[in-house]
Computed example of a mutant assay.
Amino acid sequence: MGTNEDNYNVTILVAEDEESNFLLLKTILKRHCNVLQARTGLELLRIFEEKGADMILLDIKMPEMNGIDALKEIRKKNSQIPVIMQSAYAFENDMEAARAAGSNGFITKPINIVELKRTISKFLPQITW
């Protein structure tokens, strides 16, 4: 854990197994909130259980447990937290499955920074860009 953890009141948990994608998100977010990383669906559930978060950015394609299944598990415990799905392949059936499982939104990769910030601000208006 970095020394700058909990500099902010807001924590976003990013479930992303591709390091380059995570680093891009972290670069965008780190000046505005705490950023936690989970590399697999199971790790996401563990970190969320241990540390909590104010929002989850959740990749659909991940090892051990995909994003849709991880989302279903999170929704069993917490119906309030905003969960934004992200995927390079925005297939209609993925988006449908994500909505059915309780996602709050969908971002396609490559990440559009403007779209990302707008989506986050909708749920976390306290973050100022």
Results as ranks from 00 to 15, higher is better:
T119V: 09
I127L: 14
S20W: 09
P125I: 02
N104S: 09
V10G: 00
Q37G: 01
R99Q: 12
M62Y: 02
Q126M: 13
G2K: 15
I111M: 10
R118G: 04
K51Q: 15
G52F: 13
Q37I: 09
A70W: 04
A15P: 07
T27H: 14
F22R: 00
Y89W: 12
D59N: 08
N7K: 13
A97F: 08
N21G: 11
M95W: 03
A53L: 05
S87T: 15
L45A: 03
F106H: 11
I81S: 03
S103Q: 04
D54W: 10
L36V: 08
L45R: 05
T27C: 10
F48R: 03
E96N: 12
C33M: 07
L44Y: 03
I12Q: 01
F91K: 10
K122S: 09
L36K: 07
S121K: 14
C33D: 06
M1I: 12
L58T: 03
A97L: 10
S20A: 10
L25I: 11
Y89I: 11
K77F: 10
L124K: 00
N21I: 03
M55G: 02
T11G: 03
N93I: 14
D17Y: 01
F123T: 06
E19F: 09
K26H: 13
A53Y: 02
A100L: 14
D59V: 05
A53H: 07
A53F: 08
F48M: 05
Q86M: 14
R118Q: 13
Y8Q: 06
M85Q: 05
L13K: 08
K26L: 08
N78G: 04
